[in-house]
């Protein structure tokens, strides 16, 4: 096997640093800015500073910083996995990258159809961003997905995509869609159109937030219980909350890892479903064919 060149190794090191350094920076920032406090505390994202804006002040919060860190780390991961692609004797990381791309292509093909294959990069991007944002709480950071502003931003993006795909056959066809199946249901259809992004945002945010609230409550309860049960131990031994060791970690596997991953998958699946359902497939292809027949 050929020896790797120095440039290759240097680029690899840079990519790995791109994955690690943002999180270290975010942890440092959190340690420096969080005031010491004892007891249970459930707060929203910490506001670092505000930028004055004409309509409303722009708040720069912990969740935005963490979200940017996740984006930089994912960018580094993508560059690392696709570094040094070959056609023969492929490396482990190329196997991994090809496996991810094949899986996502298959998922998009199965649930959206062949016409939407160019959606695959967007779907894996939103899946990875959502999943890794939820996983940041494993290293003690504030998960950006438990802030509604971040998730609502993604939901609005998905809503724009849905509306764009519904408008593929012109505004008249789009407006006619509201009068299905009967005309007097139009107001209800109109409301349900706007309920889609709201429910997507609330579902993701509510799941992650409820997980972190329950984790904090259980950790506090275990501390109290440990003081009650093991308080008779002599000296400083009585003050150490032994029951807090290990038990919250088991719960964290469900609330952080499983729930976070599942919600990311569901957000991506719902995006695919709504976009594919909203697209007027038959009408669009019928019009396209009619146009082609006219030209010939």
């Amino acid at each position: 096997m050929k020896q790797k060149s120095i440039g290759f190794i240097v680029a690899d090191v840079i990519y790995i640093l791109m994955m690690i350094l943002p999180f270290l920076a975010a942890i440092t920032l959190k340690v420096l800015t969080t005031p010491l406090s004892d007891g249970v505390e459930i707060t929203g994202a910490r506001i670092f500073f505000t930028i004055p804006m004409p309509i409303q002040d722009l708040l720069v919060t912990e969740s935005q910083i963490n979200s940017l860190c996740v984006m930089i780390a994912l960018f580094g991961l993508c560059l690392f996995l696709t570094h040094g692609l070959k056609t023969k004797n492929i490396s482990v990381r190329q196997h991994l990258a090809e496996w991810i791309v094949e899986k996502v292509d298959k998922l998009v093909n199965d649930s959206m159809g062949n016409y939407f294959m160019n959606f695959a990069p967007f779907i894996i991007a939103i899946l990875a961003l959502s999943a890794f944002s939820s996983f940041t709480c494993l290293i003690g950071l504030f998960p950006p997905t438990s802030d509604i502003n971040i998730v609502a931003g993604w939901a609005v993006l998905v809503f724009i995509l849905i509306t764009y795909n519904k408008l593929k056959c012109g505004p008249v066809h789009y407006l006619k869609g509201f009068a299905e199946p009967v005309a007097f249901l139009a107001p209800i259809n109109f409301i349900s159109e706007f309920a889609t992004p709201i429910s997507m945002a609330f579902r993701h945010y509510g799941n992650v937030l409820s997980g972190s609230v329950i984790s904090v409550l259980i950790a506090t309860a275990l501390q109290g219980l440990s003081n009650l049960v093991l308080g008779w131990l002599p000296g400083f031994l009585g003050e150490i909350p032994f029951l807090q060791v290990g038990i919250p970690a088991v719960l964290s596997i469900y609330f952080d890892v499983f729930s976070g991953g599942l919600q990311a998958f569901i957000f991506a699946m719902l995006t695919m479903m709504y976009v594919a359902d909203g697209f007027p497939m038959e009408e669009y292809f019928a019009r396209k064919k009619a146009k082609q027949d006219k030209q010939h």
């Binding site: 429910s199 609330f202 579902r203 509510g206 799941n207 937030l209 409820s210 599942l262 919600q263 569901i266």
Partner: peptide
């Protein structure tokens, strides 16, 4: 996960 939505609104 979709059935959970109403519960999450309440939450």
């Amino acid at each position: 996960a979709i059935a959970e939505t109403t519960g999450l609104y309440a939450l």
